[in-house]
Design a binder for these strands. Sequence first.
DNA 1: GTCATTGCAAAGCATTTGCAAGTCG
DNA 2: CGACTTGCAAATGCTTTGCAATGAC
Lengths: 137, 137
Amino acid sequence: MIASLRKAGYRITPQRLAILKVLAESADHPDVGGIHRKVGRQYPAMSLATVYKTISQLKDLGQVLELEFSGIANRYDGKKPYAHPHVLCECCGKIVDPEVPNTEKFAADLSRATGFRIHSTRLDFFGTCPTCLRKGK
Amino acid sequence: MIASLRKAGYRITPQRLAILKVLAESADHPDVGGIHRKVGRQYPAMSLATVYKTISQLKDLGQVLELEFSGIANRYDGKKPYAHPHVLCECCGKIVDPEVPNTEKFAADLSRATGFRIHSTRLDFFGTCPTCLRKGK
DNA sequence: GTCATTGCAAAGCATTTGCAAGTCG
DNA sequence: CGACTTGCAAATGCTTTGCAATGAC
């Protein structure tokens, strides 16, 4: 990620490094608020705007995947920055990456059927996770 | 839709009828602004809030499918109010329903693999439609 | 020293909510 | 008539933007 930013002409600031670190280490698909909170332990003056701006650059460079939601804050995946299915628990907000084969074939079939050129894919499933189910929904 | 509202104890007002009419007749997955604009030809005083409230009720009754997007307004489908794949043109905003088989099987496999109980599904594809491609992207 | 970046505050949008006035049943 | 609805305005929550001060290279 650092190399990618440098190559694109962006400057490497301590704030950015801290944000990259959180993104690279988080397996839980955090939202901007969550990233800001974690980085804030080291940089209490960090602005939300800085997190948004840095993520936007990483997104443009293809280093981070943005999971868009309406109603709730977008979530970010710095570990697998390419389109893949997600399952979200509507009870606790947890997001997991299920094993699903042939997701690209899906898009290819679709492109053939509709004549669209497909740029990106969104395969999301919403439900209740095993932990929340056990707690009685 | 009318019967469904009445059965649920909601009143049938002229404003609601006009909104239902637009939803039932629109094949282009309109957003709230678009619905409001169309209904406004007959009811210039119609409030956006009324459109939002009516759609929310229809959503609860399962009579309308809400397509959530972040960044752009949500779109609504009153013709096929159950989860199905969509392809959206990022250039002109057009949404089409492609033919894709076995989408329920997808969710079933996933439920087995993750232990989640799946409530709803989101299969969206983003790209450029043939018309916009022809116009040179 | 330059120019990108930061942090703050204000603006922007889609959506929701509170409430007085109006109306369906 | 009483309870549900309407329409307005204000509020909310996430995200973006403008701008002066700061800091990377």
